[in-house]
Design a protein around this nucleic acid. Structure first.
Lengths: 153, 153
DNA sequence: TTTAATGCAAAAGATTTGCAACATG
DNA sequence: CATGTTGCAAATCTTTTGCATTAAA
């Protein structure tokens, strides 16, 4: 198992690679590469913690005190629209509840957000890497299959 | 593989079982079982679609026109506090971004919401059940390991 | 009868939008 | 220079809270 390093040279290299990729993709898409966007990219590319908008905003404001929160929102959704970042969780709208407490897995439609449960002994019994104990105490694991559901295809 | 049926007798049985479990757990915890709560339970137990608060609210309002949105919120969080339902996605707060587009898996701390990426060839290459093609076109799959991180333990 | 839950309305947060000033290509 | 982007403030939308009234045990 390979753990993504949170610090050290590996992190910097990856951050730099992302920054390059993003700036080039932005240029290629005809969108302007502003000072604010570049600084937001810089912050985000270096951040391994899956930050929320507010976190990025606060970090960027250290170097660009006049940056506004809505610019951070717009820039993050821009990266998302360009397919350069993804969101955690199934959809960009409000929180949703799962009534199923049994061990199960999810099929998530990336278009409409539909979530269907499924069960599979083979997946439920999957062998988790030993290295996980470094991160913490494992309680349970589930597989999230992403795809396009029948209705959306 | 077993697919949870979205309709038919299997669904009704499971809904009924949940309803019983919830009402008994609520009684046992000393919380009052009000008309509103019962109707919210009924709606939620029958709903296989991982509904959000608004959806539950609208459905319940058909039978209980005077029910208020905040009661639905309070009831859903009550079930959550009693450990009878879970939320989708890592945390109950705002949306977060993932800068890593490479195939990877997540370790999610259920206490503080920390998310760490990890890679594992064994998990990435796990064989997905054939039955999944019934649900749609599979794009990719990831494992979400839930646990308690080092800092929270 | 006692205690907790409800509905309402207001508050608090989070996210988006309209628009004039400004910066990029 | 033309156009897209920014910052601000206001508008929306979502979720939570205080409190008097009502209902459950």
């Amino acid at each position: 198992m390979i753990l993504n390093s949170q610090d050290g040279p590996g992190r910097d290299e990856r951050a730099e690679r992302r920054l390059t990729q993003w700036t080039e993709a932005v240029k290629a898409s005809g969108v302007k590469l502003t000072h604010q966007r570049l600084e937001i990219f810089r912050e985000l590319a270096a951040n391994q913690d899956h930050p929320d908008v507010e976190t990025v905003f606060r970090a960027v404001r250290v170097r660009v005190p006049t940056v506004s929160l809505d610019t951070v929102y717009r820039t993050l959704w821009l990266l998302h629209e360009l397919g350069l970042i993804t969101t955690l969780g199934p959809r960009r709208d409000g929180i949703r509840f799962d009534v199923n407490l049994e061990r199960h897995h999810h099929f998530v439609c990336v278009r409409c957000g539909l979530v269907r449960d499924f069960e599979s002994d083979a997946l439920t019994e999957l062998p988790l890497p030993d290295g996980l104990t470094e991160l913490g105490e494992v309680l349970d694991a589930r597989v999230e299959v992403r795809g396009v559901c029948g209705a959306c295809r």
